[in-house]
Nucleic acid binder design. Structure first.
Lengths: 246, 246
DNA sequence: CGGTCGTGTTGACGTGGATCAAACGCAACG
DNA sequence: CGTTGCGTTTGATCCACGTCAACACGACCG
């Protein structure tokens, strides 16, 4: 005896449905009404589990879909011809991955899970099609892409103008803020990435990152033990970014 | 006696019409058929002239439209609280400005003309509306935004992993390539920006930029006199970016 | 239980680019 | 034609971060 439509719907809600997802205020469904979310639900077909250190996609791979992170933590990076790596971002649940692939139909960076993770697969052609129907969805998607551009500008500012400790302070405040948005403690969290990955993101060597962590700890701004971070003095960290003149 | 519709249309073609614009293959009309371009024409209402050193828009200003550069040269920059500037890009004819404003309905950076310039104003709501009708336009717009994200990743790579001379080589090759696309000489061109602006973009001080120019000239890779650049050895510049290992 | 591997910390030292300072080229202008 | 001022070049010095190296720590495993 096969499942009733209601049963199928119910099971989907427990698993994938955007309408039941506690990330929907951070993710694509933001601003949609119930009916529109239902249509988005139908589009977001599969979920995909990605084990720690596995690629969600690789640079050069054909672009087919965007991915919304349900659980887990990712990094994206680019490698240039001589093997140097630049980490371009760290992504958390509710954030969208894959927009780099739209322009050439191929991904231009790698997306790698930093812990066992799960994403919702959003076939891109279908997303474009649906957003031709639903103006709110279209606009929100444009906002998501634009936000990525603005974020990238912030990283350029960081890499172009800040010194090592300022970069690390900015990084910690950014991570803290994003954990807060997701309902976690702003002050205490577990970093999923190595010192080397942080360094690559911040344009620093891992030793410099490690030293900056130690310095912050000596100054009583944070407490560090391995990847366990506790922020003790947020205002002081913020003040590091407001330093008058260059 | 008022103008006939034909005359109005004709005058518009000489001035604004996307259909008659020699940048259409670089700009938003790319990939559209004649009828679709005509509809885009109607949307791209005003043109706007921006004098040298004038702002096209400022960080914080309400976002209303995107801008397609018709003639001229722009820079975009962000300023942080303590006044440090980061140039996030230099833009040429056919490129689109303003996408940073979509996410918050306010611009997040400044766009400043580096010489007397002219842009086509593309009211954003109308663009969204039209691209709900024309899938090709919608997709192409998404590609334009995605390309900006990919470009930003390239800048992060540059700022995060390259040394001064590599950065300048990458900059020169990039400028040269974009001039070529626009039908100008790949080898000889006039820079519109100061050494300080180049430095801000590349995360270097103006003295370092100047020294790198001089060094390249000594090595016979380029010839420099003020902002007049002639590239003499493109392969050698490219080789600088392929240097094995970090 | 000892070995090994990946990750992180810390110290000593070197260097690429920043900083400080002076002078020059060139265009605008009285 | 000299003055003014901005942008650029060049030199001398400094220092933040990179490099190299040793060691510490925990997880995993034979």
């Amino acid at each position: 005896m096969d499942e009733s439509a209601a049963q199928v719907t119910f099971r989907r809600m427990l698993t994938t449905a955007c309408s039941a997802c506690n990330l929907r205020e951070l993710c694509l469904p933001f601003g949609l009404n119930d009916d529109e979310i239902a249509r988005l639900d139908r589009l977001v077909g599969a979920r995909r589990k990605i084990g720690r250190q596995q690629h969600l996609y690789r640079a050069g791979a054909p672009f087919e879909a965007l991915y919304a992170i349900r659980v887990g933590f990712f990094k994206t990076d680019v490698l240039n011809e001589d093997g140097r790596e630049q980490v371009t971002g760290f992504q958390m649940p509710g954030e969208i991955l894959g927009m780099d692939g739209i322009s050439t139909e191929r991904h231009s960076c790698n997306a790698i899970a930093l812990e066992d993770s799960e994403v919702c697969v959003i076939p891109f052609e279908q997303l474009e099609s649906l957003s031709r129907d639903i103006g709110t969805l279209q606009h929100h998607f444009h906002q998501v892409m634009s936000r990525e551009i603005v974020r990238d500008h912030g990283v350029m500012m960081l890499l172009g103008t800040m010194r090592a400790e300022e970069r690390l302070a900015a990084f910690l405040l950014n991570i803290s803020q994003r954990f807060t948005t997701r309902g976690f403690s702003p002050a205490e969290f577990h970093l999923r990435m190595t010192r080397e990955e942080i360094g690559s993101y911040l344009g620093l060597k891992l030793e410099t990152v490690s030293r900056a962590f130690s310095k912050f700890q000596e100054q009583g701004l944070i407490s560090v033990q391995q990847r366990r971070i506790r922020i003790l003095d947020t205002p002081a960290l913020k003040k590091m970014l407001e330093r008058r003149n260059a």
